[in-house]
């Protein structure tokens, strides 16, 4: 990092703040305000339809009490169940994305050429192509007569109706496909910074592939690994795209947090209840973010 102690010689504080003013305005309006509003509304019974739309009432912690009603919260379509489903979804996606991304980055470490370009392009396209178009190709991919089953049939495997028989596995598969590029690019950039001489030394010492990875590469990419883990966790926690595949069903089996919140707020129009869920989600996210910052600080201290 460049030194910071002589900053003010180039920009006066006044010009700097002027340049920052639009940034602060956007952050205030579109990040801070929604945050404060969601917290405030979570204590009311505000709705979009019905009497509470015209005249919302302060109801204290009732919304939260209802979320954590332990008699019913594990039923299908309820908050607790959604939380559990989200945890499954996040952990499975996380393992899939980070390992696959790391695997691809390692496989093509210090390689160049057509093969690498092709794989990187495919994986990256999966990440950047628009979700609405992707939803269609995946609906066809997972169709009982779709590409996946055709491929499975060709090698003699069963042909399930994916979205009905294994909806959670389907959206995890989808999300891993969609998100691996981030880990792959991150790790391959990190591995690119490893000096070849380290690896040559390891070769000279007769290290095998696993030792080479564990003793030379892994320490070099530890920071990126932490970054990938936490950012992927946060993003996956809030991802809404599976809605386009399953609408949260069948029978609420893919009712992950973002879909659950959307349903409460924009299908039942229960803004108060939806905001209460959002507050809980934010708290969870902040804890995760705290872990991230903590890990980062420790990583920097260690260097």
């Amino acid at each position: 990092m460049p030194s910071t102690h002589q900053d003010s010689t180039i920009l006066t504080r006044r010009t700097g703040l002027t340049l920052l003013a639009p940034t602060f305005a956007f952050i205030g309006l579109f990040l801070l305000f929604p945050f404060v509003w969601v917290v405030a509304i979570s204590f009311t019974d505000r709705t979009l339809l019905g009497a509470a739309a015209a005249d919302p009432q302060f109801i204290g912690l009732d919304n939260f009490r209802q979320l954590f009603d332990f008699d019913s919260w594990m039923r299908s379509g309820e908050f607790g169940r959604s939380l559990v489903l989200t945890v499954y979804f996040v952990i499975a996606s996380l393992i899939g994305q980070v390992f696959l991304g790391l695997g691809i980055a390692l496989a093509f470490h210090r390689r160049k050429g057509f093969l690498r370009e092709t794989i990187f392009t495919l994986v990256t396209l999966a990440w950047i192509l628009p979700e609405a178009a992707i939803a269609f190709t995946w609906t066809s991919f997972l169709d009982p007569n779709g590409t996946l089953n055709t491929a499975l049939g060709a090698v003699g495997l069963t042909r399930p109706d994916w979205l009905l028989d294994a909806p959670m596995a389907s959206i995890v598969m989808f999300n891993v496909w969609r998100g691996t590029a981030f880990s792959m690019l991150l790790f391959s950039a990190a591995l690119g910074n490893v000096r070849p001489s380290y690896l040559e030394t390891a070769d000279v010492l007769g290290a095998n592939a696993w030792q080479r990875f564990r003793d030379v590469l892994l320490p070099m990419i530890k920071a990126q690994l932490a970054t990938a883990l936490i950012l992927v966790t946060l993003w996956t926690f809030n991802v809404f795209t599976p809605f386009l595949l399953t609408q949260g069903g069948p029978a609420f089996q893919t009712d992950i947090m973002a879909i659950h919140t959307y349903r409460i707020a924009f299908r039942y129009f229960e803004f108060g209840q939806g905001s209460a869920i959002a507050v809980i989600v934010m708290l969870i996210n902040f804890v995760l973010a705290g872990v991230y910052l903590f890990a980062l600080k420790r990583g920097e201290g260690a260097r």
Partner: peptide
């Protein structure tokens, strides 16, 4: 900010 944005841009913030 980054953490905040990934927190606040979910579907819940759509209401405000």
């Amino acid at each position: 900010l980054i953490l905040f944005s990934s927190v606040v841009t979910g579907s819940a913030a759509m209401v405000p």
